[in-house]
């Protein structure tokens, strides 16, 4: 037998197709499929919201808190006072199905969230930023508005849909997914949902104090601050821009003839 040296043959194990062609086909095709599925799921969530009553939701999530939430000590006086404030505000929302609970997130960035089962999370950073009870009342009232419009469930549903997609794409285990507060916090609501929540929040503040003085003071301060500090960037990434918001709130107050002057209440834990 004679050995004849041959060069390795090319093109057998390697595809001729340009990698960018494959990438393009895959990206365009899969994006189209994903968009269709995502729209279908969001539609299903909307439909499901009609069938899941608020009572059922309140019961199902009655003592649920997000897996990754780090709360401050239960003995913290701010926790009790914020809870009392919410209880007072909720009196103006007749027939609410929720028993609202408040938790304080041990985080220095300002944020507030509405989560299923009547759970309201405010961060320490937000409590540091508010200067009067009226300011805090509006932020809480705004979150109550999300509950009333059931935005929090939509956010949860959309969050789940996106988490599942992300897990599929990155190859993580879908079954192991938890519901993370950070996930939800990073997904804002639409402008329309925010506007409705603002209107509800302002109405609650008006019912409680008889005027809307200082309700938007927090946002006026944020708007006046030239630079966005890291402390408020998170809140602003999921809430409307403070300048627009102040304008809108002023317009609502004017339309409904609410007083914009009145005595403000100071916060128990401030000014000592």
């Amino acid at each position: 037998m004679k050995f004849i040296a041959k060069k390795p043959r090319e093109g057998i194990n390697v595809s001729d197709e340009h990698p960018l062609v494959e990438a393009g086909t895959l990206i365009v095709g899969l994006t189209a499929i994903f968009i269709v599925i995502a729209l279908a799921l969001i539609f299903i969530i909307e439909v499901a919201l009609y069938f899941v009553s608020t009572e059922a939701e309140a019961e199902l999530f009655s003592d649920w808190i997000p897996d990754d939430l780090v709360t401050v000590s239960p003995a913290d006086e701010r926790l009790e006072q914020t809870q009392l404030l919410i209880d007072r505000l909720v009196m103006h929302w007749a027939d609410t199905p929720y028993e609202f609970r408040v938790e304080i997130d041990d985080s220095d960035v300002a944020n507030a969230m509405a989560l299923p089962g009547g759970l309201i999370i405010v961060t320490q950073g937000l409590l540091d930023q508010v200067e009067s009870e009226n300011e805090l009342a509006f932020v809480l009232g705004h979150e109550l508005g999300h509950f009333r419009n059931r935005d929090h469930l939509r956010a949860l549903g959309r969050g789940l849909v996106l988490s599942i997609f992300f897990a599929v794409i990155t190859g993580n285990d879908v079954a192991g997914l938890g519901i993370n507060a950070t996930d939800i916090a990073l997904r804002g609501f639409s402008r329309e949902q925010e506007t409705k929540a603002d209107a509800f929040g302002l109405a609650i503040v008006h019912s409680e104090y008889g005027h809307v003085n200082q309700a938007a003071r927090l946002f006026e301060r944020w708007d006046a601050a030239d630079e966005n500090s890291l402390a408020i960037i998170t809140y602003l990434s999921t809430h409307p821009q403070p300048g627009d918001r102040v304008e809108r709130l002023r317009a609502i107050a004017e339309r409904d003839g609410w007083r914009t002057e009145g005595p403000t209440t100071s916060l128990g834990w401030k000014g000592r």
């Binding site: 390697v14 990206i27 190859g171």
Partner: peptide, 20 residues
């Protein structure tokens, strides 16, 4: 690209030259 390919199956064309 291989991750995307993994969703629908088929030849992972970007890996083939690597293994070659």
């Amino acid at each position: 690209i291989a991750g995307l390919r993994g969703l629908i199956g088929g030849r992972i064309k970007t890996y083939e030259p690597l293994l070659e």
